[in-house]
Design a protein around this nucleic acid. Sequence first.
RNA 1: GGAAGCAUAGCUCAGUUGGUUAGAGCACUUGCUUGACAUGCAAGGGGUCACUGGUUCAAGUCCAGUUGUUUCCACCA
Length: 884
Amino acid sequence: MRRELPKTYNPADFEDRIYAEWCENKYFKPSDDTTKPTYTIVIPPPNITGQLHMGHALNNTLQDILIRYKRMKGFATLWLPGTDHASIATEAKIVEVMREEGLTKDDVGREEFLRRAWDWRKKYGGRIIEQLKKLGSSCDWDRERFTMDEGCSRAVKEVFVRLYEKGLIYRGERIINWCPHCKTSISDAEVDYEDQAGHLWHLHYPYKDGSGYVEVATTRPETMLGDTAVAVNPNDPRYAGCVGKTVILPLVGREIPVIADEYVDMEFGTGAVKITPAHDPNDFEVGRRHNLPIVTCMTEDAKITDDYPAYAGMDRYEARKKIVADLEKLGFLSEVEDHAHNVGTCYRCKTTVEPRVSMQWFVKMEPLAKPAIEAVRHGEIKFIPERFEKNYFYWMENIRDWCISRQLWWGHKIPAYYCDACDKMVVTKSDEAPRCSSCGGEMRQDPDTLDTWFSSALWPFSTLGWPDENAEDLRRFYPTNTLVTAYDIITFWVSRMIFSALEFTGKRPFENVLIHGLIRDAEGRKMSKSLGNGVDPLEIIEKYGADALRFALITGNSPGNDIRFSDEKIEAARIFANKLWNAARFVLMNLDNNEIKYPDASTLSVEDKWILTRYEEAIASITSAMERYELGVALSNIYDFTWDVFCDWYIELSKPSLMNKDGAVSPQRSFAAKNTLAFVLTGILKMLHPFMPFITEEIYQSLPRQEGDSKSIMVSPYPTYDEALTFSDDAESMEKVIDAIKAVRARRAEMNVPVSSKAKLYIETKRPDIFGAAAEPFFMRLASASGTQLCDGVPEANAVRIVTSAATIYIPMGELVDLAAEKKRLLTELEKNAGEIERLERKLSNEGFISKAPAAVVEGERAKLKKHREVKAALEAALKALEG
RNA sequence: GGAAGCAUAGCUCAGUUGGUUAGAGCACUUGCUUGACAUGCAAGGGGUCACUGGUUCAAGUCCAGUUGUUUCCACCA
């Protein structure tokens, strides 16, 4: 049913209604037609704790554009949505909520905690999904997944067991990053470093034999409680005789050796380093090399252990003060320097990370990284833009083993079981705790959970049915085609999906990775909660509509680059939507109720042929940009074509054919014009639809249908380039008239002649076929002419002369014309013209250019020269006429 | 410490594989209620494409260096 368009564009009137219609008609589901090629995107699953922010809006707009484009291009498209359990982020949220009730995790216990977590997921997990719908996302909601749903959990267990059996997962005591606030290990990638002003304390450790002391420098004096050696560089002459001696650790009294290790930088501090294997990753390595004992002096919440009664229970910073004071009192502190250094913090809570030795699970990365590097190197997987491949290679080539265990409750439990009675450990997919195979005793599951990225690494195939190799979706839609994500997540997620997919499915997870930037505010700052400069996309949608938001996010941007978001941009987007809306109203106003026909060349006028030619060119360039993921370029091409070509020119050029004053226009002519308007408008709507789905659908549904189109634009075919609708000669003729109109307007504006003052135009031209009667209405409507007449030479003295490459136009203006000024103007123009001619002549007489440049380029330059020479002749004639 | 990006009009940015006189939006100036749109129309001003050198018939575009700036990675106590 066709609808009348209201006078003003008001997106709130129709966006929700249209989205509901799409859902009802199941347009988001992939076509059942298995002969169609497939195109698949899996969504980067937002956290269930998440609220839609601008980053999501951009990320999902890009995906929706690609999916809608491919759908119209005839692919069976699947955009698979879902959410991530986000173990540490969600757990932190729930802990926070419980704290408000005065409860801790330990108070409620694991079972109750998980019950709360699932409740929380039920309550808020769907929130971001609803917000994605507001944006217009055309996901297949029936296939929505969750990283902790049954299928994904099965995949996680499968992967863990297979890696373990292959020897690629191991358990070991290592030093890891520990967050004393979240009380869990975190991976290297989860540590953020920030500059902090600190101090370098110089401490004296006396030799046991009483021969003085060695001076060490440290930024963390409290860790001295765990020192098990002092290290110096083996090549350091200052300490040549000291290696092998024993020092007595102040405050503690422990006897520790002085050792030599290359790790020590002679230039830094005093050249002597205290070694604390339990609380520093480098010291841990030194400790392993020298078989040093590991002495832990801090608890998991970063308090001093009971082994040191004087400081027991003190927080690490409190202990630092006390220890420094005590050392000073006893004369072991010689100097305190200011020292800026980088401190690792937890990416979740910003607490300073405490390196800590503990038993953790790791993935051995090197064997997995290798094929993942090859896949990108050989172009099996491409990054867009390509430069991000460098980041990827750097990370993958220097990869370290991945700590995957987390001391959290919310997440996938590690499928390892330990015997209570003996030390037996079993790794199994089974949900039942096995009996110990050695002693038959009870076994208990490892209490830890897996890093949240462990399950998201499997997302492209676990969501399609893996590990069931024969799952229908997996067979039909895997490997997926494009992954869309921001550059800050390449290491966390993209790289892990690649090696996981290659290892477990033997195929790449996706062929292209489209990287986008971050959204910044109008001043270029990152949007963040703490700065309070975040813009809520839902507010924008409410105020301006989802289409305007999408337009503002995409326009003027290229892959991988950050985007500044500002009120001006969103305002410009809405204005464009309004422009399109009104252009559509104009077309509708003039349209009969007929179906839109494919244009028939025999009925077309020169202006129709011109717009169709320009339209076909637009299809070619827009499609090419879409295929290259240059979505910003594609959109600006659509914008320019819509506004500058279609609205500003063709609609105006069509008016003489539509406004049939005294029956001068034939029904055939009027039909061709109306049909051309509707045909081109429909094409614009289709090309714009992936970017602005709502307004294009709303307008489309109010237009008569084009042959072969569906009732919804989103499942209509995308325009394809048709050479039969290009008419280069006619288009060129029309351009010449347009040039002349522009030149007349410019001169009139220059002379401050109001539009209302009409004047007859005399046109001297070698192309009377173009500038004859057919062109008259255009000059009358668009160049303030009262009429036009072809002439040969100056029609009367004191006429303004306007010179274009195809014609010289005279406007008799009587006294209005200042002869002296006119002469001056002609001379200036002639001078400009002469400059151009000289430049071109020089270029064309350059033998290197003629012989080496492509023929087409040379030809183009020749044509230009010819055109300029013609203008020169016309200008000279005009000047002569003026003087004579 | 290592790496990458960016530097183009007053502002925000486009500018494909080198090939017209370097573009757009906003802002600015001037004139217009022209039968879809004043959320509009028309005309205009404004740029030594950061700097230096190189390759080329030809450089905003490719190469090297310099300066400024942003980001990522590493984490020497």
